[in-house]
């Protein structure tokens, strides 16, 4: 099953490489990885999506928790949560396709953020499934470049991941 694990990490040089290294060292899989500072300058928030059975996920969270630089950790998929990813896509927009792309962008509630005579740059946010669906819809038109941030997430309701 796919899991979204969110981590508060010491904002120290080398901390990220310990997390990433752990995954390769122990043969765990990383689907997406997203990391940025938080409101507390001493902490980064890192979100990783990974796939594995219960035993593997248990090992992943235990080993992550063992890292000295990992301050707090939550498996968001254990509860209700919000999952978002941002994607920028350059798609071909020539002739009849120009309108077609525009319509699809509207259907997906995406935005065109840059325009040239031959292409659109589209910005879209949503869960990974929505982004995948958008790419599928655009494939016949011609996708030129894709930049995805990787999944970020947060628990629904009163639950807060903090110190």
């Amino acid at each position: 099953m796919r899991h979204i694990i969110s981590i508060l990490l010491e904002n120290e040089p080398g901390a990220l490489s310990r997390v990433v290294g752990l995954f390769s060292q122990r043969n765990f899989n990383i689907e997406t990885l997203n990391v940025a500072p938080t409101e507390d300058p001493s902490l980064s928030r890192l979100t990783v999506t990974t796939v594995g059975d219960d035993r593997v996920i248990e090992q992943i969270t235990k080993h992550l928790n063992k890292l000295i630089d990992v301050v707090k950790l939550v498996d968001l998929t254990e509860g209700n949560h919000i999952e978002r990813e941002l994607m920028l896509v350059k798609v071909k927009a020539l002739g009849a396709a120009r309108d077609e792309v525009k319509r699809t962008v509207d259907i997906f509630r995406a935005q065109i953020v840059d325009v040239t005579p031959s292409l659109y740059t589209v910005q879209i946010t949503g869960d990974a499934g929505k982004l995948d669906a958008f790419l599928q819809a655009m494939a016949p038109v011609g996708i030129l470049e894709v930049a995805r941030t990787g999944v970020s997430g947060i628990a629904r309701g009163d639950k807060v991941l903090s110190l």
Binding site: P13, G14, Q25
Partner: peptide, 14 residues
């Protein structure tokens, strides 16, 4: 050396 030893230490410091 911090990089080289990363998988074989409990922790490391620079």
């Amino acid at each position: 050396i911090v990089g080289v030893t990363r998988p074989i230490v409990k922790h490391s410091f620079s």
